[in-house]
């Protein structure tokens, strides 16, 4: 549907749309103000004064760095696993017609369609049954499971747009399966994979519900934040961390948007 050429939006609609967008964005902007407040004991508004000293305080906190480091490592490895699994699955589903295709799509979407608490508790009780101690790897296992879907969605959309005759053309010109993958398939789905990987990274970096069930004593950054939310002890540091998290997750999302904006609908709805 193209936009109305002659019509202009009714005023009521404009106000409702602008109001909705403001409702979505103002709370996040508020985080940026609170990161610089001088008040440490309460959430007082308006801030009595502004200071940048909490940035330095947070910078020197080893527990924050440790949590951040763990989150980055978990997100990086989960992303790699999800990219491999998601791409394989997307290639199989879009290149071949076989019995049970729908089931496979459903299986990929399930870990994100079911509430996170179900995935979390299911994995936790499975680890207990199998006597697997909680570790870095149990966190990764949980994260990779629900990250597959974003890579899969992006890759499927791109495969659908890539004409199947390109692969035939490559084989026709003498390239075998591996050469075709290297010279034709990979360059054509590369940006979609990159976008899917970035979204997977953002998803993993931010995940808390499944993580509370699959992490032992280790704290990822969201777990660190959750503890602060439940029992606030160091409000100013939490404010700064919240701001950093917003900035860190925005960058991959923007990058993913620019990588896929011509053509594929960014697989945002797949979250």
């Amino acid at each position: 549907m193209r936009s109305d050429r002659n019509a202009r939006a009714p005023l009521g609609l404009k106000i409702a749309a602008a109001g909705g967008l403001a409702f979505l964005h103002l709370p996040i902007l508020l985080i940026f103000v609170y990161a610089f407040t001088t008040e440490e004991k309460s959430y007082q508004w308006p801030p009595p004064g502004l200071t940048a000293k909490w940035l330095a305080v947070t910078w020197n906190r080893p527990d924050v760095w440790e949590a951040l480091g763990l989150s980055v490592r978990v997100a990086a490895i989960s992303t790699v696993v999800a990219m491999v699994l998601g791409t394989l699955c997307a290639a199989a589903v879009s290149r071949t017609r076989f019995f049970g295709r729908e089931t496979i799509s459903l299986l990929v979407i399930l870990p994100i369609a079911l509430p996170g608490i179900i995935t979390g508790i299911a994995l936790r009780s499975a680890f207990n049954i199998a006597d697997i101690p909680f570790s870095f790897w149990t966190i990764v296992l949980g994260h990779a499971t629900f990250c597959v879907v974003v890579v899969y969605n992006n890759a499927v959309a791109r495969f659908r747009r890539t004409s199947s005759s390109l692969i035939e053309a490559s084989m026709d010109l003498g390239a075998d399966g591996f050469q075709t993958f290297r010279h034709v398939v990979l360059p054509n789905i590369g940006t979609a994979l990159l976008a899917g990987g970035m979204l997977a990274f953002a998803l993993s970096f931010d995940e808390v519900i499944v993580t509370t069930f699959t992490a032992g004593q280790q704290a990822t950054l969201p777990i660190w934040m959750l503890e602060e939310l439940v029992r606030p002890r160091q409000r100013p540091v939490t404010n700064v961390v919240a701001m950093v998290v917003v900035l860190v997750t925005f960058l991959p999302i923007l990058a993913a948007y620019y990588l896929t904006r011509d053509g594929d609908r960014v697989a945002g709805a797949g979250k």
Partner: peptide, 10 residues
């Protein structure tokens, strides 16, 4: 998109 993907806890 941005609010969708920005941190749940934040």
């Amino acid at each position: 998109m941005l609010p969708l993907w920005s941190s749940y806890l934040v």
